[in-house]
Amino acid sequence: MSLMIGNIKIDGNLVLGPMAGVTDLPFRLLCKEQGADLIYTEMVSAKGIQYNNKNTEKLLEVAEGERPVSLQLFGSDPYIMSETAKRIEDKNFDILDINMGCPVPKVVNNGEGSGLMKNPKLVGEIVHAVSSAIKKPLTVKIRKGFTESTTNAVEIAKIAEANGAAAVAVHGRTREQYYSGEADWKIIKAVKEAVSIPVIGNGDVITPESATALINETGCDAVMIARGARGNPWIFSQIKEYYQTGKIPKKPTPQEAVDMMLRHARMSIDYKGEYTGIREMRKHIAWYTTGYPLAAKLRNRVNEIESIEQLQELLFEYLKSIG
Results as ranks from 00 to 15, higher is better:
3 L>I: 06
5 I>T: 08
5 I>C: 10
11 D>P: 08
13 N>H: 10
16 L>F: 14
19 M>E: 00
26 P>W: 12
26 P>S: 11
27 F>I: 01
30 L>G: 09
31 C>P: 05
32 K>T: 10
33 E>N: 15
37 D>P: 07
38 L>R: 08
42 E>W: 05
43 M>H: 01
45 S>H: 06
47 K>M: 08
48 G>E: 04
48 G>I: 09
49 I>F: 11
49 I>C: 09
53 N>E: 11
54 K>D: 10
57 E>M: 15
64 E>I: 09
64 E>G: 03
65 G>W: 09
66 E>Q: 03
66 E>W: 03
67 R>Q: 04
68 P>Q: 03
73 L>Q: 04
74 F>W: 11
76 S>D: 12
80 I>P: 01
83 E>A: 15
89 E>K: 12
90 D>V: 14
93 F>A: 01
93 F>I: 03
94 D>A: 02
94 D>V: 00
97 D>I: 12
98 I>L: 13
100 M>C: 10
103 P>I: 00
105 P>A: 14
108 V>R: 03
109 N>T: 12
113 G>L: 09
114 S>Y: 00
115 G>R: 00
115 G>A: 04
116 L>K: 01
120 P>D: 04
122 L>C: 09
125 E>Y: 11
126 I>V: 00
127 V>M: 03
134 I>D: 02
137 P>I: 08
140 V>P: 01
145 G>M: 13
146 F>D: 06
150 T>P: 02
150 T>S: 14
150 T>G: 11
151 T>D: 10
155 E>Y: 07
162 A>Q: 12
162 A>I: 09
163 N>K: 06
163 N>W: 02
163 N>R: 04
167 A>C: 11
170 V>S: 00
171 H>N: 01
173 R>H: 07
175 R>F: 02
179 Y>L: 12
180 S>M: 07
181 G>C: 07
192 K>M: 13
193 E>V: 04
197 I>T: 08
197 I>Y: 10
198 P>C: 13
199 V>T: 06
202 N>A: 05
202 N>F: 02
204 D>P: 00
204 D>F: 03
206 I>M: 14
208 P>A: 03
210 S>C: 02
210 S>P: 00
214 L>C: 00
219 G>I: 05
223 V>C: 02
228 G>R: 06
229 A>G: 10
236 F>L: 08
236 F>Y: 07
243 Y>W: 14
245 T>R: 07
245 T>V: 05
245 T>I: 10
250 K>M: 15
254 P>D: 02
254 P>M: 07
256 E>R: 08
257 A>H: 03
271 Y>F: 15
272 K>W: 15
274 E>H: 11
276 T>A: 15
277 G>T: 08
278 I>A: 06
280 E>H: 11
283 K>C: 10
285 I>F: 08
286 A>H: 15
286 A>D: 14
287 W>Q: 06
287 W>V: 07
294 L>V: 08
295 A>K: 11
295 A>P: 05
297 K>P: 07
299 R>D: 10
302 V>Q: 07
303 N>C: 13
304 E>I: 12
306 E>D: 05
307 S>Y: 05
308 I>G: 11
310 Q>V: 04
314 L>K: 00
315 L>C: 00
317 E>D: 11
318 Y>W: 05
318 Y>D: 02
323 G>E: 08
